[in-house]
Simulated scan of single mutants.
Amino acid sequence: MQDSDQAVRIVHHDAQAAAGLAARIGGTAVLLKPLAVEDVLAVAAAGERVPRKSTSFGPKPRTGLVLRTFAID
């Protein structure tokens, strides 16, 4: 199976919608608990990577938001 947006669809925070989508398109819904921050840190410390979208944390900054630190170097 290709790992593309057409082959793998991601539904966040709505198990019923994921199952409904899978039923409509003849696919399979896989429902997973989110990773804990400690798990992500452990994988990173081992030099590995987690699958895409498994670290989809929120809330996200708005597109175009500019951040500036006030620290003086």
Rank of each mutant, 00 (worst) to 15 (best):
residue 46 A to H: 05
residue 71 A to V: 13
residue 69 T to I: 08
residue 53 K to T: 15
residue 12 H to K: 15
residue 7 A to M: 09
residue 25 I to K: 11
residue 35 L to F: 06
residue 12 H to Q: 14
residue 27 G to F: 03
residue 48 E to G: 12
residue 16 Q to A: 15
residue 67 L to D: 08
residue 10 I to G: 01
residue 51 P to T: 04
residue 22 A to L: 01
residue 41 L to I: 11
residue 68 R to N: 07
residue 8 V to G: 05
residue 65 L to T: 13
residue 51 P to Y: 05
residue 50 V to C: 09
residue 13 H to V: 03
residue 22 A to S: 02
residue 46 A to V: 02
residue 13 H to P: 00
residue 35 L to Q: 03
residue 9 R to S: 09
residue 51 P to V: 05
residue 58 G to I: 01
residue 22 A to E: 01
residue 67 L to N: 08
residue 52 R to E: 12
residue 40 V to C: 03
residue 42 A to V: 07
residue 71 A to C: 08
residue 64 G to V: 00
residue 56 S to R: 14
residue 34 P to R: 07
residue 28 T to A: 04
residue 55 T to E: 14
residue 11 V to D: 00
residue 9 R to L: 11
residue 41 L to M: 15
residue 31 L to S: 07
residue 50 V to G: 01
residue 53 K to Y: 14
residue 64 G to N: 02
residue 63 T to Q: 12
residue 49 R to G: 06
residue 71 A to P: 03
residue 62 R to S: 10
residue 72 I to L: 14
residue 29 A to C: 07
residue 55 T to N: 13
residue 44 A to L: 06
residue 2 Q to Y: 12
residue 52 R to S: 07
residue 23 A to P: 03
residue 52 R to I: 06
residue 46 A to S: 11
residue 70 F to I: 12
residue 20 G to P: 01
residue 57 F to Y: 13
residue 34 P to A: 06
residue 22 A to R: 01
residue 27 G to C: 01
residue 45 A to I: 09
residue 42 A to I: 06
residue 44 A to W: 04
residue 30 V to L: 15
residue 48 E to V: 05
residue 65 L to K: 13
residue 34 P to W: 04
residue 26 G to L: 01
residue 3 D to A: 14
residue 52 R to H: 06
residue 38 E to R: 07
residue 6 Q to W: 07
residue 33 K to C: 01
residue 64 G to E: 00
residue 63 T to C: 04
residue 17 A to E: 08
residue 8 V to D: 10
residue 43 V to P: 05
residue 32 L to Q: 08
residue 61 P to F: 10
residue 11 V to I: 10
residue 70 F to G: 13
residue 34 P to H: 07
residue 38 E to W: 00
residue 73 D to H: 09
residue 25 I to Q: 09
residue 38 E to H: 04
residue 52 R to P: 10
residue 13 H to Q: 10
residue 40 V to L: 05
residue 53 K to Q: 13
residue 22 A to T: 01
residue 53 K to G: 09
residue 59 P to G: 03
residue 3 D to F: 13
residue 56 S to T: 13
residue 12 H to Y: 15
residue 11 V to N: 01
residue 2 Q to R: 15
residue 26 G to F: 00
residue 43 V to G: 09
residue 28 T to Y: 04
residue 60 K to P: 01
residue 64 G to T: 00
residue 26 G to T: 02
residue 67 L to S: 13
residue 29 A to T: 06
residue 54 S to M: 12
residue 42 A to Y: 08
residue 1 M to C: 08
residue 52 R to C: 01
residue 42 A to F: 04
residue 2 Q to V: 12
residue 68 R to M: 12
residue 30 V to D: 14
residue 10 I to D: 00
